[in-house]
Write a protein that binds this DNA or RNA. Sequence first.
RNA 1: GCUCCUGUGGUGUAGCGGCCAAUCAUGAGGCCCUCUCGAGGCCUCAACAUGGGUUCAAAUCCCAUCGGGAGCACCA
Length: 561
Amino acid sequence: MSAEPIEETIRKFALQNAAFFKGKANPKAVVGKILGGFPEYRSKTAEITQLINSIVAEVNALSPEAQKEELAKTAPELLVKEKKERTYELPDLAGAEKGHTVMRIAPGPSGPLHIGHTRVSILNDEYTKRYGGQLILRFEDTNPEKIDPEAYDMIPEDLAWLGVKCTKTYTQSDRFEIYYDYTRRLIEMGKAYVCTCNGEKWRDLKEHKLACPCRDLPVEEQMERYDRMMSGGYEAGKAIAVVKTDIAHPNPAIRDFVALRLVDTPHPRTGDKYRAYPMMNLSVAVDDHLMGMTHVIRGKDHLNNTLRQKYIFDYFGWKQPEYIHYGLVNIPDTVLKTSLIKQSIQKGEYSGWDDVRTGTVRALERRGIRPEAIRRYWIESGIKSVDIQFSWDGLYSMNRDIIDPISDRYFFVQDPVRYDIEGTDAIVGQAPLQPDHADRGFRFYRLDGPKTVFITEKDSRAFAQNKEVRLKDLCNLTYGTPAQYAGNDTAVLKKGVHAVQWVSRNSVPAEVLMPDGTVARGLVEETILHEPSNTVQFERFGFVKLEQKTSEKVTAVYTHN
RNA sequence: GCUCCUGUGGUGUAGCGGCCAAUCAUGAGGCCCUCUCGAGGCCUCAACAUGGGUUCAAAUCCCAUCGGGAGCACCA
């Protein structure tokens, strides 16, 4: 192409631009295209612009038909807009080497994981799989007041269900002595102090960029105070170990921060063996270094903690990991706070951690959301530091992609209304288990003897009004008591007759637990008793996950439509 | 109040000086197909926060304004 005279190239692009935009080419767009494609002309932009202007004028003088005809002759490939393909994948990590990344998932064991936690879990797992490194699960249980002992088991279960593979697990309550040791070293270096001031006063001074009297005491005295603090010489709340940063730092959030505090509440794992509990900025900094973290993915809300932790890294001469701070996720209409969920469970308002009204991983699993859908959702959301809105619709759409092809179809009739059918002998019918995959087989129907069916209350009302209805995959009916058999010609559908789901007398009572906690009651066709999977679609109702399936009763949980 | 992060259709996202009068998905609307209100196909809707500047050329770089968020805990 570069071999031909530039005039011809310009003319082609002008024709193309004209063809795409109603016969009028925009000279600026052509200039951009030429200069972009042929950098050698950038030094002569004035001349080339003039040339383009005149050629565009010529082209625009032609009729749109003539433009298209000429373009079809000289450069037919430019006539079609190129469709760009997009693959969804995460950007590379800065400085990541194959086989040498170490990353972490560091939850506080206050309850099971919820949808919000899944983002950081999936992202870490994705990168670990890409680079083939280590993924450490670290329980950050340094606040004895906010621990649910069951969480130590629930969290790994949730991660396993998500498909997140951790290569190693640490628990911070095993490591208190390590944090004490590093605190001691900081004090020795003059980079930390023991403060016995009233907490309010200490904060107040900090706000005004002022040091408290303890801050400048000599190291020897600090060491004495530290020993006293560690040996029970202070009451809880009467002394703290503080890391010095810059007391006059313009950002108030990173002026001197607490490293250790005294708490009398017994720890679920260590009992009353320890009273001095590290604050996360101390334990996280120490552990991130000792565990060799190369990359840390955390929420943007930790931005200031990263800056605080930098002081510890700098004091010890450690290299900080690469940090990626992703934006906050706003998850609408969902109960996520584990403390609230726990309360409601205790009060009996929620059935448990998997109550479908909550946003826990367990609840999602129970509702029939697949972990692959969650994974895809977070990968497509990326890792930018913009705050984002979580979209249930978006997650459902991805989940539907996964479950639709594998879900067998069944009829569920909510709020059933009975109709007896007259005017024929036995009626037989069959329906595909999955209409897009006939090879999956069929459900076979046969109505004998007294022919009784049930349709939903809603469909019944429409039937009474329209006088006609089609029982899907079975037959047509004309309204009446009893209803009259009206043949089996599906042509009625073309005339606007509705095809509705129905069940026979042999159907099974069924209950579907809805996401708002209510229960949809009705009947489900008996063929479902042979269904091997628990993921099915109730036609014209929605996808559900089966929980219980006996000839007495079927229970299911609503997934989405 | 101070400090930091951040602004592309309703939502998420691509693009990060010219190939963009802007990608893909979701959503909404319409049509086709289908014996489901599922799936599939086609079409349409809808965005570079605003104002300056730099440049032949800005969604992309700079500045200001405005908007959103977070932190300033003896929580994580």
